[in-house]
């Protein structure tokens, strides 16, 4: 009897800590993402509040400066009624945000946490991650279409336009990292960085473009265009209430998180603590990766307190002229480095 329990316990633990389960479910997947979500939304409000000489979230937990605010918000979303308007396409209206929420998690599956800890270690894991990220906008379009609301519709259209324009610089700048490190495998990319130094130092151009694209594609200021409050209320999620609205609020942060993880892997040396490689305890690499991603996330949300938002045509112009050109230059830059490497 004892043996059986022991056996089950051990296999259970083994199963849980196997990369295939642990990564999507615990870290950096669901649980880590949820806790980050809670912290980051609080942080965003707090940073904005401090810059604006206010207190921000406070009364929910006074001793921690209101850090539990999001837990309270989440509870409120959970228990408030989900009103489904008569005029909406009901199935799409309910399912689209849920599927969208699930899909924003998917890229995390292929992002490795350390040298030998990845749910899916594929030769083309970078491409898979990028491909999965592009699912976001199509489902947001469904959300906006299903709502049957003019503001949602305009928001969805805006997101459609934006996604067309940001995906190309996103992919090109990621490709220039791939060219630089000669691989599409994220683990290999980090290994290369451990050997030769972080991507951001080799190709700062690509790193800048990728960072801007992160801010751009996750609706952070100054590119918070699809949800522009003073123009179109809250964009695609105008008709949503209760937990469905809560999901909608969280989606862009989850996307931000997964993109920041990818950024850390591509340009910030992944789980390597510093430029040179160290042999580390298996838990530590994950934490290091998380911290790097968190810095990117925190910077992105900090921009809320700095910028107004661009107009959609201006954002499109920036994407097609500036970001596209810079991304292309960064690709050439990577090839240049490769050539120098081969020659020298």
């Amino acid at each position: 009897m004892y043996d059986l329990i022991n056996y089950l316990w051990e296999t259970g633990l083994n199963l849980l800590f196997s990369p295939e389960i642990f990564e999507p479910l615990v870290f950096p997947g669901l649980i880590a993402a949820f806790s980050l979500l809670i912290v980051v939304i609080w942080l965003e409000r707090k940073i904005a509040a401090i810059i604006q000489m206010r207190y921000g979230p406070y009364y929910i937990s006074r001793h921690t400066e209101g850090a539990l605010q999001l837990v309270a918000d989440l509870l409120r979303f959970l228990f408030s009624e989900v009103i489904i308007p008569k005029s909406v396409d009901k199935i799409a209206y309910v399912l689209a945000p849920i599927i969208l929420f699930a899909f924003t998690f998917l890229p995390i599956v292929v992002i490795p946490v350390s040298k030998d800890f990845a749910a899916i270690d594929h030769e083309y894991s970078l491409l898979i991650a990028l491909a999965l990220m592009t699912l976001y906008s199509s489902f947001l379009l469904i959300v906006s279409w299903a709502s049957n609301n003019k503001f949602s519709f305009i928001g969805g259209l805006r997101e459609g336009f934006l996604s067309l324009s940001y995906e190309i610089p996103l992919i090109i700048s990621a490709l220039s990292a791939a060219v630089l490190f000669d691989s599409f495998n994220l683990i290999e990319i980090v290994e290369k960085q451990a050997a030769m130094g972080w991507g951001i130092f080799y190709n700062p151009l690509a790193a800048i473009v990728f960072l801007v694209v992160i801010i751009y594609s996750t609706s952070r200021y100054p590119y918070e265009i699809a949800e522009a409050e003073s123009e179109i209320v809250i964009g695609p999620f105008t008709e949503y209430t209760g937990i469905l609205f809560g999901l909608g609020m969280g989606i862009s942060y989850i996307k931000l998180y997964s993109m920041s993880l990818l950024y850390a892997v591509l340009f910030l040396g992944g789980w390597e603590p510093v430029v040179w490689p160290l042999n580390l305890h298996p838990v530590l690499p994950g934490i290091i990766l998380f911290i790097k991603a968190f810095i990117i996330v925190a910077f992105s949300v900090f921009l809320r307190a700095v910028y107004p938002r661009y107009r959609i045509d201006q954002a499109l112009r920036i994407a097609w002229w500036k970001l596209f050109t810079l991304a292309f230059l960064s690709l050439l830059f990577s090839y240049g480095i490769k050539i120098i490497e081969v020659m020298g």
Partner: peptide, 8 residues
């Protein structure tokens, strides 16, 4: 302005 100085 990240150094807190609150008006509230």
């Amino acid at each position: 302005y990240l150094i807190p100085r609150r008006l509230t």
